[in-house]
Amino acid sequence: MYAERPAPAGLACLWTRTVPAPAVQRVVPDGCTDLMWTPATGALWVAGPDTRAQLASVAPGTLYGVRLPPGAFPSVFGVPAHAVRDLRVPLSDLVPAARLTSFSEMVAFCTARVVADPALTATAALLRTRDVESAAWEIGLSSRQLRRRCLDAFGYPPKVLQRVLRFDSALRLAWTGVPFAAVAAEAGYADQAHLAREVRALAGVSLGQLIRP
Rank of each mutant, 00 (worst) to 15 (best):
76 V>K: 02
24 V>T: 15
47 A>Q: 12
26 R>L: 14
89 V>Y: 03
139 I>V: 15
187 A>H: 00
131 D>L: 05
48 G>Y: 06
90 P>D: 06
164 V>M: 11
26 R>S: 04
45 W>G: 01
182 A>R: 15
144 R>H: 11
59 A>L: 13
153 A>I: 07
201 A>H: 14
122 A>P: 03
134 S>R: 09
83 A>Y: 13
76 V>F: 03
206 S>P: 07
153 A>T: 13
6 P>L: 11
36 M>I: 09
30 D>M: 07
213 P>D: 12
212 R>P: 01
146 L>N: 00
204 G>T: 02
17 R>I: 03
111 T>F: 01
29 P>I: 10
170 A>E: 06
114 V>E: 02
109 F>R: 04
135 A>G: 07
177 G>P: 06
48 G>A: 03
72 A>Y: 02
60 P>L: 00
31 G>A: 08
87 L>F: 01
80 P>E: 10
57 S>K: 06
147 R>T: 15
146 L>T: 04
20 P>W: 05
84 V>S: 04
137 W>N: 04
11 L>H: 10
189 Y>N: 04
133 E>I: 12
63 L>H: 01
115 V>Y: 05
52 R>C: 12
117 D>L: 09
208 G>E: 14
186 E>S: 11
184 A>S: 12
6 P>I: 00
57 S>W: 10
36 M>N: 05
54 Q>I: 03
32 C>L: 09
79 V>R: 11
32 C>I: 00
147 R>F: 10
86 D>K: 00
34 D>R: 03
115 V>Q: 14
209 Q>I: 00
120 L>Q: 11
13 C>V: 06
